[in-house]
Amino acid sequence: MIPISYYLILSTIIFTISIAGIFLNRKNILVLLMSLELMFLSVNFNLITLGNYLGDLTGQVFVFFVLTVVAAESAIGLALLIVLFRSKKSIDVDDLSELKG
C-alpha cells in the first residue's frame, strides 16, 4: 500500500508546476491553457486519492464532473483564443495588456 501522502505530494508538485507555468510563461496563451489542464489534473488526483483511501466513490463521481467541465472549459478557451487571434493577430501574453491601469 502506497502511503496517501505520496499521492498528495505528487499532486501538489504538479499543481505548483502548473502555477509556475502560468506566471513564467510569456510566450503564448496556449501553454497557459495547458497549465490549467495540468492544474485540473492535480485536483483530480487529490479527489481520486482521498476517495480511494476513504473508501468512497463520490470522489470519482466528482472527478467525472470535473472532466466534463474541463472539457467544456477548454473548448470555450480555445474558441476565445481563436477569436483573440483573429482580432490581434497574436496570442502572445505580452501583447494582452488592455487591462493596464
Binding site: F23, V93, L96, S97, E98, L99, K100
Partner: peptide
C-alpha cells in the same frame, strides 16, 4: 501611484494571487 500595479499582464496577476 496605485494604478501602476495594474500592469495588465496575466502573469503579474497570477503571481499576486499565488
Amino acid at each position: 501611484k496605485v494604478r501602476k500595479v495594474h500592469t495588465g499582464f496575466i502573469y503579474h496577476y497570477s503571481l499576486t494571487i499565488i
